[in-house]
């Protein structure tokens, strides 16, 4: 870069706004977050390992990541279909559907949690019909997946939708005029273009699901080794005043989220490169 590090600008307020930004960021986010690292340095590696290798903790981490993976996959598949329908077709109520897709961003998680439980519990709206068929949803890992599908629903729709909207119709016309049938055009031309956006949405839904707490705990039933998620294990440790244990689980989750964040960032760079649009 040939530009000087600090270019003089005629616009005022640089010192004040940047100073305030850094101070506020430090006080609210960075210093408290560093408490986790400080607390971890208190632990011996053995203590850390003992907490992390507890069967209940291992089961909860497996459940959190496994259920999140399945939920994000379901959202990627159906989210793509819904985004396609919203961009390409018109149907009655489309505007309302488009608006309500963001509901999981706006609806408090506890509300979603009790609503889903009311639907899928043994005597619930759908539960009463599923139970005689031998399908149990509430208080099982399937219930957890349903809650995670709910909270991850907007991500794939909202990352795929703008890319699909900007897609040049001429690309598809070119494929068609070169002899591709519709299925070939969609699967070999359109899907590869929206693939990075789809993967970004998938990763965002996955990352959100791993840390989710409020919408899950009501429907999960929280049975040890069966339906206890990792964030709940942190709370359980805290309630036993086991701060080191809680921090150990938090460190594992933070580390894995950090890796996810890196993946999402490089996926977004890929999207930008492939479609030429800023993300």
């Amino acid at each position: 870069m040939s530009k000087p590090l600090f270019k003089r600008s005629v616009i005022p307020g640089f010192g004040v706004t940047l100073g305030f930004t850094l101070a506020y960021l430090g006080l609210i986010v960075l210093i408290p977050l560093s408490a986790v690292i400080w607390k971890t340095s208190d632990l011996t590696l053995l203590q850390f390992w003992q907490t992390i290798s507890e069967p209940r903790v291992v089961a909860s981490l497996k459940l959190s990541f496994g259920a999140s993976l399945i939920a994000a996959t379901v959202n990627a598949f159906f989210g793509l279909i819904l985004a396609w329908a919203l961009v390409r077709y018109s149907f009655p109520g489309k505007k309302i559907v488009d608006t309500l897709v963001d509901l999981p961003f706006a609806l408090p998680t506890a509300v979603a949690g009790i609503a889903l439980t009311a639907i899928y519990a043994k005597n619930g709206w759908l539960g009463q019909y599923l139970e005689p068929l031998g399908i149990k949803i509430a208080f099982t890992p399937i219930g957890i997946m349903i809650a995670l599908i709910f909270i991850g629903l907007p991500f794939v729709v909202r990352t795929v939708q703008p890319v699909l909207e900007d897609l040049d119709k001429e690309i598809e016309e070119a494929a068609a005029s070169l002899g591709a049938n519709r299925a070939q055009t969609v699967f070999k031309v359109v899907l590869p273009i929206i693939l990075p956006a789809l993967l970004t949405g998938f990763a965002l839904a996955f990352a959100r699901a791993v840390g989710e707490y409020g919408s899950v705990i009501f429907i999960a039933g929280n049975l040890p080794m069966v339906s206890e998620i990792a964030p709940l294990m942190i709370i359980t440790k805290l309630e036993q005043y086991d701060y080191s244990g809680a921090t150990s689980i938090a460190v594992v989750m933070l580390f894995l989220s950090f890796i996810l964040l890196l993946i999402v960032n490089s996926l977004q760079a890929w999207t930008a490169k492939r479609t030429g649009r800023e993300v």
Binding site: L5, V36, L254, L261
Partner: peptide, 30 residues
């Protein structure tokens, strides 16, 4: 304005979104 470390600052601002709410509570307890 232009200043070094801008991209890192933007990533830092986004940090709370990638932290589980339970961990957000935990850090203040710590």
């Amino acid at each position: 304005f232009n200043f070094p470390g801008k991209r890192i600052l933007i990533t830092m601002i986004d940090l709370p979104f990638s932290v589980s709410p339970v961990i957000a509570g935990l850090i203040f307890v710590l």
